[in-house]
Write a protein that binds this DNA or RNA. Structure first.
Lengths: 120, 120
DNA sequence: CAGAAATGTAAGCCCTCACTTACGGTAAGT
DNA sequence: ACTTACCGTAAGTGAGGGCTTACATTTCTG
């Protein structure tokens, strides 16, 4: 098991927080919008069916997940995607992918004697 | 009402369901376990801090997300990762990544003003 | 300096969802 | 056939989180 721990035994790894952050449709919409161009909170909220404070809260979550960074520009605050923010998540999925393929190959090569096989 | 159904971006695409499925720590643990080798429900539940029916429900969600497939083997039912299940999610993240990079490049190269930009 | 504009935060409501126990159904063993 | 094992589903409960309104703060503008 090359992965950390997905359960509750450990601190949240970057990929976990990113995954949980992107699970929300509104947050995905925000991220997709920011993937086109940076924007302040007000503009983001204007294009969404939720209130502006809701967007602020979502941005806070996205920031904690390392997916978004902000820069104060006068009274406004410009939000943009963190370029490397998706890297941990992508790596995690790649590892899952590779392990699954390896397991599939091993399964095809030898079709028995796993631990879950009947233990009579 | 708070827009009960969650989709601003259109009909629930596969990557969305996969994302929401993997957001749960228990389901991630199941997927990671299956990425090592196929297993029946009982074995999966034995390695998790939840009951067996809970695992069944999670597997149903993962199946609906296209991440897991099952094959009845005698009285048991063997679950394994769907090799192509992660593809839509990976593609989605790749697109997001590429768009963000393009936006960053455009930002650095920008000449014209966006609507929210301050004039100066 | 007063007013407006833009944002973050607090308090609270409500709905989703993960989990449990209880039950019904199918396949293997004796 | 009876019993045992394994599994999926139904019903109900509790905690988490997303949303809203109200408020405090900072900054630009006239």
């Amino acid at each position: 098991m090359a992965y950390g721990n997905s359960d509750h035994t450990g601190t949240a790894h970057p990929y976990a927080t990113a995954l949980e952050a992107l699970a929300d449709p509104t947050r995905r919409a925000i991220v997709e919008r920011l993937s086109a161009a940076p924007a302040p909170v007000g503009v983001l909220a204007a294009g969404l069916p939720v209130s502006r404070p809701a967007v602020s809260q979502h941005l806070k979550v996205l920031g904690a997940a390392g997916l978004v960074i902000s820069e104060p520009r006068g009274a406004r605050r410009i939000y943009r995607l963190a370029p490397k923010g998706l890297a941990p998540l992508r790596d995690y999925l790649d590892t899952l992918w590779d392990d699954a393929l390896a397991a599939f190959a091993a399964e095809a090569h030898r079709a028995s004697a796993s631990d879950w096989k009947d233990s009579s």
